[in-house]
């Protein structure tokens, strides 16, 4: 996977996450449906996390181990936040 392919994968991840989130938020607002609003909010929060996973995989595929490791560090921070959130 070259840099251009990795960037396309990232673009698709962002676009997909925003499409799901935007549609759920809009429908949830119009129909006054709390479950849809929750889905929209959670899909939005998950989008940067999924992009970071895509980035880590793209860097690992290029054997760019230093930056793949940095991506994993960022994921670790996100996972720590999720752990704290689930415990609270």
């Amino acid at each position: 996977m070259n840099d251009a392919d990795r960037n396309v994968a990232l673009e698709l991840t962002f676009a997909g996450g925003l499409a799901v989130s935007g549609a759920a938020l809009l429908l949830g607002l119009v129909l006054s449906q709390e479950p849809l609003l929750r889905l929209g909010v959670l899909a939005l929060i998950a989008t940067p996390a999924l992009a970071t996973v895509t980035l880590a995989l793209g860097l690992a595929a290029r054997r760019d181990w230093l930056f793949a490791a940095i991506s994993l560090w960022v994921l670790l921070v996100l996972a720590s936040s999720l752990t704290v959130a689930l415990r609270s």
Binding site: V41, S80, S81
Partner: peptide, 11 residues
């Protein structure tokens, strides 16, 4: 990414 780490706590 930075905002997502904080947003999940607020949620």
């Amino acid at each position: 990414v930075t905002a997502a780490a904080s947003a999940i706590l607020y949620y």
